[in-house]
Design a protein around this nucleic acid. Structure first.
Lengths: 236, 236
DNA sequence: TCATGAATATACCAATTGGTATAAACATAT
DNA sequence: ATATGTTTATACCAATTGGTATATTCATGA
């Protein structure tokens, strides 16, 4: 099985729930099978989620071509029959894994954004997210968007398309925040939303890349400080 | 052979020289064999260079795991016997290909740097390089450092080490330029060399990533303009 | 021109690749 | 408790993987 647990909980419904080290997802052991603890879910759907959760980091680290079906069966403890019973092919697993990786980040950022009241706080919410979660991102193999984009640009059009839309939606979100700020008078009128969004994304992605490649967190942290300064410079 | 030519030259020494479309490297056809036009080179060394030149872009685009021996023989028109006669294994070809890709960029940047007289011109030389050569870099599959780093971080330690040193040497070069400027009074005294170098690299790499992923050059060009502004802000 | 070492092609290898047909095991509603 | 559809394991497939031994071809100095 090869699963590392960090917590065990008792429930009256399903007995013991094992929390996995990675991502803190609730799994439980029922008879001899592992499930993700979501009631009302079909078994196949739970197995699907299990496969995705167990392989998401592998795809993020090794890339599509570098991840084999043997990696997938090894990480899940399932056989090829189970994998192909739930996914059409390796392609489908990879796409689902990317969606999972991206979704985890998106969800957490979104939560942080909802508490933000103005432009400054919204932009700062991103910075705070990366300040808090960069160790997890590093463990997970780096930014899924960067990885998927540079992994698939030539070889895997479907995955590249997913990565491209993910990046676009992040960029559009930043642009919207700044445009809204321009309308509300919370952002200095000479700021160009697109250019700022590109600098914003570059400082984050570049910081992750340099930090991961040189094996030190400092470049990312210093980039995030720079980003804070730049945010303060454009808001009123 | 699958080689696209853009120019043909006559020489009295070796007959016809065919300039390849990619990288403008001089190859020539002698009898039935192709060579890189470097006199005094052993045949094996020329074949080695030929293999490297023909596969460099493929490795940059497809990554190590995504590039097969069949890709290599297909791109060169040589058989596996020839490849393994000149390289120990696929690993060795990949490492040489990365060194080639990185070397091409390094060489061109270095040429631009030699004409620069002060800190501003030195930093601007980098910007000019990317402004001039970004179409070539895109055709070539993006920045080799970013590609190699994100491709090999988990799967291929030897290649990752190469990518890591390449990034480090780029970063150190930027830091040296700024430190020199601080000593000469050409840079404002409150500038932190490392932090500036990280922002510098991030704007370039991030710009390439966004541009390539979204399929438009604008983000890179706008980042380079931002970089120019930031350079002007730190020099005296 | 020819002998000799260097370079390349050919034919092969075991292992692994992604994928499938089918049989077994399973969960669950009745 | 059992019947039934769902899910998973087993056993297999052709194709491809990286790599090698050996035969052939080639380049070149004498």
């Amino acid at each position: 099985m090869n699963i590392l647990m960090i917590a065990i909980k008792q429930t009256h419904l399903f007995g013991t729930i094992f929390f996995l080290e990675q991502r803190n997802l609730p799994y439980f052991c029922f008879y001899t099978n592992w499930y993700i603890f979501v009631r009302g879910m079909k078994k196949s759907e739970r197995t699907k989620q299990f496969i995705i959760a167990q392989t998401a980091a592998i795809f993020n680290k090794k890339g599509f071509a570098g991840t084999s079906m043997a990696d997938i069966t090894g990480a899940t403890g399932l056989t090829k029959g189970a994998i192909y019973g739930n996914f059409a092919n390796k392609d489908a697993v990879a796409l689902a894994a990317f969606a999972f990786n991206y979704g985890q980040i998106r969800k957490t950022v979104h939560t942080g954004l909802q508490q933000a009241k103005n432009t400054r706080e919204k932009l700062m919410a991103y910075v705070s997210f990366y300040k808090e979660y960069y160790p997890t991102i590093f463990e997970w193999g780096g930014c899924p968007i960067l990885n998927a984009a540079s992994d698939s640009d030539d070889a895997h059009p479907a995955l590249f398309e997913k990565a491209s839309s993910a990046l676009e939606s992040w960029r559009n979100n930043l642009i919207s925040i700044i445009e809204e700020g321009l309308d509300n008078g919370q952002v200095k009128p000479d700021v160009e939303p697109e250019a700022f969004a590109d600098v914003f994304i570059s400082l984050v992605e570049g910081g992750i890349l340099i930090a991961k490649t040189l094996g030190t967190e400092k470049p990312l942290l210093s980039n995030l400080e720079q980003l804070k300064t730049q945010i303060e410079q454009i808001v009123i």
